[in-house]
Design a protein around this nucleic acid. Sequence first.
DNA 1: ACCTGAACACCGTTCAAGT
DNA 2: ACCTGAACACCGTTCAAGT
Lengths: 224, 224
Amino acid sequence: MARRRRPGPRRALSEEMILDAALDLLDEGGSAAASVRSIAARVGVAPNAVYTYFPSKAVVLQGVVERILGEVEHDTVVDAARPWRERVESLALHLRERVLAHPAAVPLMVGGPMDGRNALTLNEQLLELLCDAGLTPTDAARASYLLVVYVFGSMALNVAHGPDSGPLPPEADRVAARRDRFAAIPAESFPRSAAATDTIASFVTTEQFLWGLRRLLDGITAQA
Amino acid sequence: MARRRRPGPRRALSEEMILDAALDLLDEGGSAAASVRSIAARVGVAPNAVYTYFPSKAVVLQGVVERILGEVEHDTVVDAARPWRERVESLALHLRERVLAHPAAVPLMVGGPMDGRNALTLNEQLLELLCDAGLTPTDAARASYLLVVYVFGSMALNVAHGPDSGPLPPEADRVAARRDRFAAIPAESFPRSAAATDTIASFVTTEQFLWGLRRLLDGITAQA
DNA sequence: ACCTGAACACCGTTCAAGT
DNA sequence: ACCTGAACACCGTTCAAGT
């Protein structure tokens, strides 16, 4: 089935080089920096040459998402001998860590299809885990969707306030920035929100992420 | 403290008119249709006249988000006499229904600050509800964040696959579209995902939303 | 103070032409 | 088949000028 291809001049690039360039630009300058023109410039071709490799910018960005999800080493992180809840937790924590390394890509994930090979692999592993836990296939599928919504939803809200360029600041700085942001809540109109400022500021932490994840797992097991 | 303003010619517009135009365009043509230029055209002024009312496009879109969140009639939906779980459920369902009426606005909410007056009002009401349920202020704040992540996260993933224009199709059509999309999963590589196609297709339904919400409430009460 | 015309510095994408 | 120059139809935003 091996078809010969491209009889013309050797191609100067590869899909991978374009995805690399796009991801680098995304990491360095945020979503606005990853234009077709700047991607092309970085790999040293004219803007329209990109369309030899990808049909549109949207497909390039989809490829970037897939590349990031591919960086999640699905199997090595999760020790099959441990209890299933711990396995889910370490998978979720690892996924979150890997994705938050590319903050500008989070909106692309939440806003796009997420039905590529690596996304499916991730989902498949989660399903396996939940079936091992004794859930029916239907409940496992529902629960995995719930977990996906939580992991990606929390990342999206985490990233929402931050700057649109560069890597994610350290956790302490993000908490401080959030506290500043919510310190101005008028206590007379929103007494409970104002009183909870410190807790609200901590929503961007891994600790709060784990708290929510555990409540979610509690809910799933209570159901089973 | 009433300060006199604008000694020049009477302003032809108001902030509200601009927000109306922006929301209409968003609803009719998706996020790409709500450009500063098209907003200006709809209200009958030159593009740069918009900058007399708002400092930037981002602030206009923030205003649109606030307007939508203001459409949620916080109090009337939730009967204070009912058990707190039911009150949370009806608040979440109502919020979801109101927001999904404007699919193109969902990414704006998940991607932006969400710290306006109406967003705070919503959060305050949720906090009150959870405190009534017996949670400590800290746990109530954490739980409300968990609920917000879930409600907005699930909407974002729901809207992600759909077309970028017009109102959200009826639920049955969205399920069918999703089934088509995931019917192509190769069963040899992803056996569990392929077997769960029907369940996966149903993720966009209100029923599945409620299922997840209830697991979440189970987890929160198990903690308390 | 509010609005305009014109311009600046960008976009994504297409097309005819070269090799 | 791959790449280029040039163009098309857009963007958000700024600025000087009018009233």
